[in-house]
Amino acid sequence: MTELDPHDHYAEDAELEELVAYLDGELESERATRVEERLATDPAYRTRLRELARTWEMLDHLPQSSVSEHFTETTVELVAVQAEKDLRTQQVAVVRKQQSVRLVLAMVAVVSCLAGFGLIWSWQQRGERRFLRDLPIIEELDMYRVADSVDFLQSLEERGLFTENEEIHDGDL
């Protein structure tokens, strides 16, 4: 037996597809007419079509399946039970979502309170921080008042007078 070359296989497949599509009523009218013309003149082509048609008819011998007596009832019940389960799952999901939203809201409220408290505390501390910053000046205020000008005070600082004073103050501490 000689082997078919790939072109012959392709032609054979294309011919088979065409015959099957013709049998299935899936060919456009122009191609269906061409098939019918060939069927009228080509006995081998006609035989192939007949074999395919007969094979198709043999499928009618397939055993008919029967449905269990209570299939409809059990299916409807199963679906009803599942639907109820689905509903319960959905309800639980909704409750969980609501709980999550409440938890997030509570956390936002707590964080907001903490942030507000921090801001107020920080604002209140601002006055005290200013007082602490100015404390060295306040402590030496009487001395500064004696001086007539800023230039004089600066010259005292250059001589290290304030540094000595600070050292004295540090020593006191």
Partner: peptide
């Protein structure tokens, strides 16, 4: 689908 069905029909045949 056309190819699938034609192969199925050939195998069955």
């Amino acid at each position: 689908v056309k190819s699938l069905l034609s192969r199925a029909r050939r195998n069955l045949k």
